[in-house]
Design a protein around this nucleic acid. Sequence first.
DNA 1: GTCCAGGACCTAG
DNA 2: CTAGGTCATGGA
Length: 304
Amino acid sequence: MEILLPVRDYDLAATLDSGQVFRWQREGESWNGVLGEYFLQLTQTPAGIHARAIAPVNDWNFLREFLQTETNLAAILKTFPDDKPMRDAVAVCQGLRLLRQEPWECLASFILSSTKQIVQIRQIVALLCERFGEEVGRAVPCPPPIANRSVRFHHDGAQRTARPTTAFAFPSPERLAACTEVELRACKMGFRAPSLLNAARKIADGKLDLEKIRRLDYAEARKELMTLRGVGGKIADCVLLFGYGFDSAFPVDVWIERALQELYFPRRRASEKRLRHFAATHFGPHAGYAQQYLFHYMRTKVKS
DNA sequence: GTCCAGGACCTAG
DNA sequence: CTAGGTCATGGA
């Protein structure tokens, strides 16, 4: 099963590798990942994004939704403030997009993200899916064929030839609610385990309705998410932005705090309150989008 | 060995 | 409101 989603101004690699999602892996020129129960391989071509699935797909709208291929990026970029930091960020991150994730996976992933490097978040999430997720595929959907199931990483980060032959869906709230804290801690998530377990139980029990949050306004939705243990303002904003598309959500992590401080308040040190107010008023109706550009801009600056 | 990571939370001033 | 400690774990 294949499809071509025609789209331009789309940097698939930057988008999948910008800390929004944690389960997509580069495989040569392609990216492998799981959406819902579909094991997919995405490839960027001049005509757009080519997708391949091993299982039959009769409606590809879930993928258009995830990739947000219908979004008019140029129109969003026009709303960004016309200052040097944003101009530089936009120039460096051309084609960077915001994805639209399934809220539960997004929430769970970001509960696991606190004071963790992105590589480690990936590792934790991978373990979680491998141990508690439903199997959704036994082979990479396209060449090269894979024979070895285990995943081995060297300390230098390079991946050995061994790659997973089995792909797993993200475990449901019900499945994780049935886990013990010890089982979760065994996925190397440390003190985040009780928070994840608590969230899974609340959702599985219907005490928190992630679909209901979709219909709230930003402030109410944020407050609702923050009733969860281990979910403060930053993680709530990530879920609201990446999972629900609240473009006014502006997650302030250490990178963004550093970016705002260095790029907009280089002389005097601004308080956290001051930075949050600045973020809420300076970046326009798509502030969250601007935030992702700043985030990726800062991260690529350090990497290279 | 030291520092820090897409934080949250609690306490003390 | 701000500053500092604590929570696990592992990469750099």
